[in-house]
Design a binder for these strands. Structure first.
Length: 283
DNA sequence: AACCAGGGAAGAT
DNA sequence: ATCTTCCATGGT
């Protein structure tokens, strides 16, 4: 067991609420805990994070098999090392002022690992959240594995051997099935190292991932944000972002690309936070 | 019933 | 290069 102190504001209960939307996440709102499935040097490891502080003075207890790498990974995933004060300050002078005040202390929490982010993004493409979660849950429970009460996604070697028919039976579209199996094969064969992308620039990650069939700009932008924690992404193709802007500015229709290009200028270099808080504003 | 959903590939221009 | 159409399936 280990205790960690974090600089506020940091609204952990808001994070747990958000995590609990995904049926695969093991969240206990009453106990303020989440079980985090991690792959440390190729081995699955489960850490239990429990909130014991407040938004202004956040504190955590970590339980499970803990080593330095696990703590470091958790700190990065939960963004304990990114103080939000400067970022909030930046947005208080913009059109997003009210939204940031309303959701103050919302960090850009990452997905539990980059590979998981990519697969989840593919499954979620162009699907409503409800069905997307259903599909993801079926996929992981059928082909993944469980450890200490949490499901892990099937590793690339496993996913590469799934057949298109097996996925179609669980209501994947044929295309989506091909995308997932194809990407798993590329990774399993060693032609793509997602973890190595952490050392590359946003543009380099974009140019290497967009070559994959099934991966477009939206997916890479989401990967950069929620897989790697990059801070200046704005997925304009995202229907949620478009609806949030429509609501913010009381538009009759969804904003055009040109309008979004104009709005986003004031939000740099923290566009990922603009995106995140815009999403929160319509939930 | 019609339109939408936290897109992307393939075809057309 | 940029624009349009088609893809698939559940949700509302």
């Amino acid at each position: 067991m280990q205790t960690v102190n974090v600089k506020g504001p940091y609204n952990f209960d808001g994070i747990l609420d958000r995590l609990s939307i995904d049926p695969l996440n093991e969240v206990n709102l009453a106990e303020r805990t989440v079980r985090v499935p991690l792959i440390i040097e190729g081995e699955p490891n489960v850490a239990i994070v429990k909130g014991i502080g407040t938004t202004e003075n956040p504190k955590f207890i970590i339980e499970g098999s803990i080593d330095d790498q696990t703590i470091k990974r958790l700190a990065h995933i939960l963004q304990w090392d990114v103080p939000l004060t400067d970022i909030h300050q930046h947005f208080l002078t913009t059109d997003l002022k009210e939204i940031f005040e309303q959701h103050m202390g919302t960090p850009l929490v990452l997905d539990f690992d980059p590979y998981r982010t990519l697969i989840k993004c593919i499954i979620h493409q162009q699907l409503n959240m409800s069905f997307a979660h259903t599909l993801t849950e079926r996929f992981v429970k059928q082909f993944g594995f469980e450890k200490e009460g949490v499901f892990f996604y099937p590793p690339p070697e496993t996913a590469a051997n799934i057949t298109e028919e097996e996925l179609r039976e669980m209501q994947f579209s044929g295309r989506k099935a091909q995308y997932i199996i194809g990407i798993a094969k590329v990774i399993a064969e060693g032609q793509l190292d997602l973890d190595a992308l952490a050392e590359k620039s946003d543009d380099e990650v974009m140019s290497s991932l967009i070559k994959l069939r099934g991966v477009g700009p939206w997916t890479v932008q989401n990967f950069l944000m929620f897989g790697l924690g990059r801070k200046n992404l704005f997925p304009m193709a995202d229907i949620g972002i478009q609806n949030a802007i429509k609501k913010l500015y009381n538009l009759e229709r969804k904003p055009t690309i040109e309008e979004m290009e104009q709005y986003k200028k004031a939000w740099e270099p923290y566009l990922s936070y603009a995106s995140l808080y815009l999403w929160r504003s319509i939930e």
